[in-house]
Simulated assay, not measured.
Amino acid sequence: MVPTMVLVADDSRDAGRQEALHGLADAVAQRGEAPVVPAFGSGSEVHRAVDSVEGPMVVVPAFVAGGDLASSRTFSGIDLDGRFDACPTPPLGAVPSIVGDLAGRLVDTGWDSRDGVVLAADGSTGQDERQVVADVARMLSRRLGSPVQVGYLNSWAPSVGDAVERLRRNGRDNVAVAAWRLVEGRDYDRLHEMGAASVTAPLWPSEIVVDSLLAQHRAAKARLAA
């Protein structure tokens, strides 16, 4: 029996975010590899959706590590104790294809090696996600051949705005923001208010995101079968 993929995120903040998340769930389902259940909403709504799934399931974050503080809190609160047929996965992180796509998005905005780069993350409840963001920044820096500064929107320091200003003080007149988040929404819109010359689009839509989520499902399915 193929485990159900349960995609988890907080979508309670705005309609644009809801639409993007459901579009992602539809795109994953259309691949036909596994049944997909969207568990989007507030914490209680997510818990009800997870509890409603019968049979084996793989619980997959529909967000990137450090890229969605609210969803990270919701995901960490899911109780799978006693569900021996359930396997959670970590959020997407320093996946080479995703980081490569992010680098391409920067170039598409007009970035060149004379410009600064801020990797704009959100924050999370765990230090492990902060380490993933640092890993993404290092990988992106190697891809670009240029330094990458990390900034945060809702947790940790420095803030995105402070990171942009620091690069400007260091002689980078133009600073591009690489948005480390899966979908659009009000938090993403705030990035356009940080004084950067450009902001990349969210990582979704991209078939690379769908590929990466399904790869996580396959790995978890193998663990469940072991």
Rank of each mutant, 00 (worst) to 15 (best):
H192N: 06
G123L: 04
P90V: 05
V177E: 03
G100L: 12
A39Q: 08
I78L: 15
L80D: 07
T89S: 15
D122P: 00
V209K: 06
A29N: 04
S124N: 02
G100Q: 11
I78G: 06
E184S: 15
E129D: 15
W111L: 05
L182S: 05
G195C: 09
P35H: 07
G145K: 01
R190E: 15
N170K: 09
D14I: 00
A225F: 08
V199A: 04
G195R: 11
Y188V: 05
V107S: 14
L224S: 13
L69K: 05
L153G: 00
D112C: 11
A70Y: 01
V95F: 06
R223A: 08
D11Y: 09
D162F: 03
M194Q: 15
Q127W: 13
V99Q: 06
G151L: 04
P90C: 11
P96N: 12
L24G: 03
V164Y: 04
A137V: 05
F75N: 09
R105V: 00
P202M: 10
E184H: 09
E207Q: 14
L119H: 08
P91K: 13
L140Y: 09
R218L: 00
V50L: 09
S71R: 10
A25F: 13
A120V: 04
V160E: 03
G195Q: 14
L153M: 03
R223M: 10
F84H: 12
V2L: 12
Q30V: 01
V118M: 09
V50Q: 06
M139V: 05
S97M: 06
H22D: 00
P3A: 12
N170G: 11
V136D: 06
E19G: 03
D189R: 10
V2T: 13
A65R: 02
L191N: 00
V95I: 14
V36Y: 10
P38A: 06
